[in-house]
Design a protein around this nucleic acid. Sequence first.
DNA 1: TAGATTGTTAATCGATTAACAATC
DNA 2: TAGATTGTTAATCGATTAACAATC
Lengths: 211, 211
Amino acid sequence: MNNNNIPKGVISRLPRYYRYLGELLSSGLERVSSNDLSQLMKLSMSQIRQDLHHFGGFGQAGYGYNIIYLYSEIGKILKLDKTHNLVVIGAGNLGQTLTNYATFEQYGFKIIGIFDNNPALDGQDIGNTGLKVQLLDELPDFLNQNDIDIAVLTIPKQGALAIIDILVTHEIKGIWNFAHVDLNLRVPDTIAVENVHLSESLMRLSFRLDD
Amino acid sequence: MNNNNIPKGVISRLPRYYRYLGELLSSGLERVSSNDLSQLMKLSMSQIRQDLHHFGGFGQAGYGYNIIYLYSEIGKILKLDKTHNLVVIGAGNLGQTLTNYATFEQYGFKIIGIFDNNPALDGQDIGNTGLKVQLLDELPDFLNQNDIDIAVLTIPKQGALAIIDILVTHEIKGIWNFAHVDLNLRVPDTIAVENVHLSESLMRLSFRLDD
DNA sequence: TAGATTGTTAATCGATTAACAATC
DNA sequence: TAGATTGTTAATCGATTAACAATC
């Protein structure tokens, strides 16, 4: 029940459960057994039951799991039942792309500001989001005036390190880090850091290529 | 020595070793011990030695590891000593951003084509890469005429599923998948699939946010 | 009721850590 | 040589799988 003891592997699988349950839901089904799910997702049914067991039971013996119920409970565990405000720091290609990415909002992640230190980008419109790029100088004020949970870091390494103090001071709750640094080693552990290292992902793929 | 038996966790850590060794290298150092590295990377020194042990030993008792040597050996393991040609399938924001992303080329990953099924995008220039968007109809010919290792999938789910047959037929070696489907369940296991599910990454972060 | 399927405990498997002889 | 540090084997820890009594 307490999220602090949940193994990392379990957390990793939760969004995938959520995705499959969403698909089952829109296919109109009502219930699913751990055995059904296990065949669909190529996991063992033991693992599925064990994973859910960490959060208490959501099923019913002899019946299985009610899809809507399990879907919404996993949503709650992932805090998708709340709205989260985000700022994007770095208005290069990647920052702009993520700001435009409509899927996030659908899960309650609302990007409400995008910042860069390049004056040439100042005031530029981002797609049809209605947002305009602001200068990094304005970030502290913006953080004071808005309730921001997550900062999305899409600036180069050096810039990322420089910005950390501001984020820590303003008690941001999480950092979604696309910069090639391990921020987790430089941030108090009250702040959650999730790294997306694209180059490293590509290297892992490269490793597995047959010759 | 045989890459098939290497635990997944070890593979995951290799690119990170590579990144740290690259930084040590450019800081001018010559050698590093597993103890030094362990403090830098917050891993146990046992784990580092055990990880490297999977590929044979690269160190020297009483000395440690020669940084240039270890860096280049890990590069070879990750196949970064070879050039890989890539095509991007899907010329939306994400596809264009990845195509522009200069870092990949630095590691030998060359994007040499970008495709979309939207006629409105046909012929559009991608940043300063010199590439122009081609229609998906042209993909099979392009795959025949060029030696492509990796396809980067940045199209929506449905499109991604439709494109798989073409990729399989043309014996692509790997798929870097940004679509919200688990392609690994639908592709022969001679083709490596690496998934980057951005929404799921964001959900994992969300889970860990303190209230 | 009988059959199905859960939650949960016990067994197995794999990965991480500890220890140390070998060696530079 | 003495000190440092490796490669590698053994011990520990954690995660996955198997089993089954409880229950709908």
